[in-house]
Each structure stands twice: as structure tokens, then as C-alpha cells.
Simulated scan of single mutants.
Amino acid sequence: MNHDTRRLPAPGGQVGPLWVVTRGSGPPLVLLHGNGEDHHVFDRMVPALGAGRTLVGIDSRAHGRSPRGDGPLRIATMADDVALVLDLLGLPSVDVLGFSDGGNIGLELAVRHPGRIRRLVVVGANLFPAGMNRSMRAVGRVGHALLSVLAPVVPRLRVPAERFALMVHDPCLDPADLARVDVPTLVVTGERDVVRPEHTRLIVGSIPGARSAVVAGVGHMVPVQAPDRLSALVTAFLADGPPDEPSGGTAGATRANP
């Protein structure tokens, strides 16, 4: 497989609509962060993940150093942004690690742009807002309601209000759509994640051959709370033979302990 990374900005730069940072050399691994964050959420994982790989950190629109852009702020739109950036970088197929909304973006990318992902790891992902637990949904509703009132009179709150809107209205993935995801996929959650366990099982069961892993003793912020254990899971999964090799025929489940 050709891993020509000569177009990658080093260490960082604007690529089309988004800010992109890179580090290392070798097969590319795209890192997609969560709501209200930027690529730095993966900082503690960089030393382990970057061995023999080019890490490509992307700030989603209206996050980090990426501009807001035009059109709606939706998970599907963000996935289209990533596909465009990959085109501009000349990367036809990449491994993807997405955390939280970044995992949702990764799932949308796999559904909306078949063939762009080689292997996919999603951490703390959900298909729709009801996939989160009751407390997290309440936080989203209250934050959205408050910021929606303040944003018209405090312009700097408009983007945060849109981000909270994502928690209330997005993503909007139909589990049936995941049957079209034909790439090896690992679905990771924290033991005390805000994503409901039954919802994670729905994601795993909807993606043909998907594997699952639970990181013991942590909540939703797995890349920050357990960077070494998550890095080990990701590295092992990405190294598990080429994508066309069978992995046993059934979904597997593992548990990453302290």
C-alpha cells in the first residue's frame, strides 16, 4: 500500500477547511477528537501511537484552530470535511481513531465515504443522543437551553451553543446503516462511560465482525484517563494483519485492566 505523506503539513497547517497537525512517518493514523476539544486530547497517547506511524491530528470545524465554516454544524458535515481533507492530502485510505464525537465522525465517514478507512477504532461513540445516559443528556439539554438564550446577545457564545446542540440533536445514525461498514472496527468504552452499555452493544452488533473492548476503572475520557491502555488496544488492533485477513469470524470482546 502506498503511504505517500509528502503533502502533510509539518508540524501543522490549514488544509482546506480544517487545521491539521502531523508527527512521525509511516502509515497514517488519523486522530479525531470530541466535542469542545481539539487534537491535543490525544497528547498522552502520541509517544506510543506514533511509533512507526504518521499521526494526523485534525481539528473539527469550529474546534481548535479550525474555522467555523459555512453550513450546519453537524456530525455528518464534519465527516464530509474529513473526507475532503483526506482528498487534499492525497490519502485515499487511512486508519482512523475517533474519540467521542470524533468516534461518531469516524462512523459517519465509514458510512458516507466507503473505502476511505482501512481500520477504524471508535472510543465512547454513540449513534444518537439517546445512546448516552440520562445524566449526560440532561447536561446537554440544560447547556443548550442556556446558551441558546445567551448567544443572540453574546456573539462569542454562538459556537459553544452550536456545540451543545450537537449533544442534543446529533449524531443521527441508523443502526441499519452500520451494516455497510465493511472495515475492521474496534469499539472501545470506559467502564463508567456516559454511553450506555446496551447502546455500545448495539453499535458492535450492527457492524459486521466488529470487536469491543472495555477499559476498566475509567469514565468517558479514556484517552486522558487511560492513555497507555488505550494506546495498547489501538496498536494491537491496527497491527492485527491486513484488513482482508479473517479475525476469527465473530465479534470479540476484551477488557483492559489497570
Rank of each mutant, 00 (worst) to 15 (best):
H3A: 14
P11Y: 10
Q14A: 14
V15Y: 09
V20T: 09
R23H: 14
G24L: 12
S25K: 13
L32R: 04
G36C: 05
E37D: 13
F42W: 14
V46Q: 07
P47A: 12
L49V: 10
L49H: 04
V56Q: 09
A62I: 06
S66I: 04
G71D: 08
A76Y: 01
M78R: 06
A79I: 03
D80C: 02
A83E: 00
L84G: 05
P92G: 14
S93A: 15
V94S: 07
V94L: 09
V96S: 09
S100H: 08
L107H: 02
E108D: 13
V111H: 05
R112T: 00
R119H: 03
V121N: 06
V122G: 02
L127K: 02
P129W: 09
G131Q: 03
M132E: 12
M132V: 08
S135K: 12
S135G: 10
R137M: 09
A138H: 06
V142F: 14
V142N: 07
L147H: 10
S148Q: 12
L150W: 08
A161F: 04
A161C: 12
L166D: 00
M167D: 00
M167F: 06
P171A: 01
V181N: 06
V181F: 04
D182G: 10
V183S: 02
L186T: 03
V188H: 04
G190S: 08
G190F: 10
E191C: 11
V194H: 13
T200K: 01
T200C: 02
T200W: 00
R201Q: 13
I203E: 00
V204W: 00
S212P: 07
S212C: 02
S212R: 12
A213T: 01
G219A: 01
V222S: 02
A226Y: 08
R229C: 01
L230A: 03
A239M: 10
G241N: 10
P242L: 15
P242H: 15
P243R: 11
P243I: 07
P243K: 11
P243H: 04
G249T: 00
T250R: 15
T254H: 01
T254C: 02
N257D: 15
